[in-house]
Design a binder for these strands. Sequence first.
DNA 1: TTCAATTTCATTATTTTTAGTGATTTTCAG
DNA 2: CTGAAAATCACTAAAAATAATGAAATTGAA
Lengths: 199, 199
Amino acid sequence: MSRTRHIIIVEPSFIIVEGLSAVFSKFGLKYTISKAATLEELSSLLIIKACDAIVLNPLLLQNNMKGVQALKTRFEDIKWIGLVYAYHDPSVLAMFDTTITISDTPESIDSKTDKILLSEYSADKDLPQDILSEREVDVLKLLASGLANKEIADKLNISINTVITHRKNISQKTGIKSVSGLTIYAVVQKLITLENISG
Amino acid sequence: MSRTRHIIIVEPSFIIVEGLSAVFSKFGLKYTISKAATLEELSSLLIIKACDAIVLNPLLLQNNMKGVQALKTRFEDIKWIGLVYAYHDPSVLAMFDTTITISDTPESIDSKTDKILLSEYSADKDLPQDILSEREVDVLKLLASGLANKEIADKLNISINTVITHRKNISQKTGIKSVSGLTIYAVVQKLITLENISG
DNA sequence: TTCAATTTCATTATTTTTAGTGATTTTCAG
DNA sequence: CTGAAAATCACTAAAAATAATGAAATTGAA
């Protein structure tokens, strides 16, 4: 088990900061996050607390390449991750150890971060064996989304009989017969997103 | 004190979704959020739950302008908010009631959202705010736990007709008709925990 | 006490779902 | 190529759920 990594996110957009923060939070104690909106704030943060990596919007480099170079020299162990959501000159991106984009999945962000932090790559790839076939998952998703058999059939362009057959197989494989049970199953298996109400 | 507004965020980027979600969460009970990554998911969500506004990345419109127009017609009271972080053709942006960008502050996002939600009559329809009665909650809990109407009736020592009546009222109050939608509602409202579900 | 909401139950007609049994076509790894 | 799994569709009978109305008894706050 590797230690917790401390990461500083430097990005002016509140949305991006919170979103990226949420991404790292998904991985439990693996990461702790600090936030900064400007390079000045970053400098202040670095004085009071060490960190393993800095996620930085390259836009912030525009007028202060020198200052950043100084920081890089001073904290040579810190990894720099570019956070791109627009075009950036390759020469600018070259200064980063890796880049992540806003379209990256949490897993890909975690994996990229892992890689540059040289931490041991999680070997346990015991991915949950998908009991259900692809088509069965299609049906289950729509079912858990509130559609009736007929609607599912229309959406998937198959006959209602086929939908019923799939549902029979789904129930048999999962051992769950009720719609509510299957809905929860879909949520737990992350087949559908149930993210409501902050709590 | 106005009622809670339900907003659906439709955006493929996990980061953006989480970030924007965090923005709305800042305002406590003012907003509740659902998330969708694609237009398909949006359609499914709209079936099981009403909403006040949809925040949508215009990029998702590229290949499905028609589908969105259909949704707009079908749910004419829903406000559409463009979520822009790149250039978009003005003709595309024209279909939105307002737009927000990732550089907006939480306050500005709240203010923009407020503005369009208050525009025109926001004649309270029978959206989610009606609270369920005690007995209705009893029924909902058992329903979301996988029991059929008959089983619920037995468990509560009432006739199946009464259960059906309760369910009609529940659906009317929540605006949710499908069992899966009600199940998710029950989970979100913390009426049941995931362990309660049986087959 | 009064009135509204809640809880209870019923009937009828329709629609949807489930159960059981088969069967044909596709797909894909060995 | 072959066989197994997957995906497709059909038919029937029974069970369950929904829709539309109506209404009596209970409860609780004004």
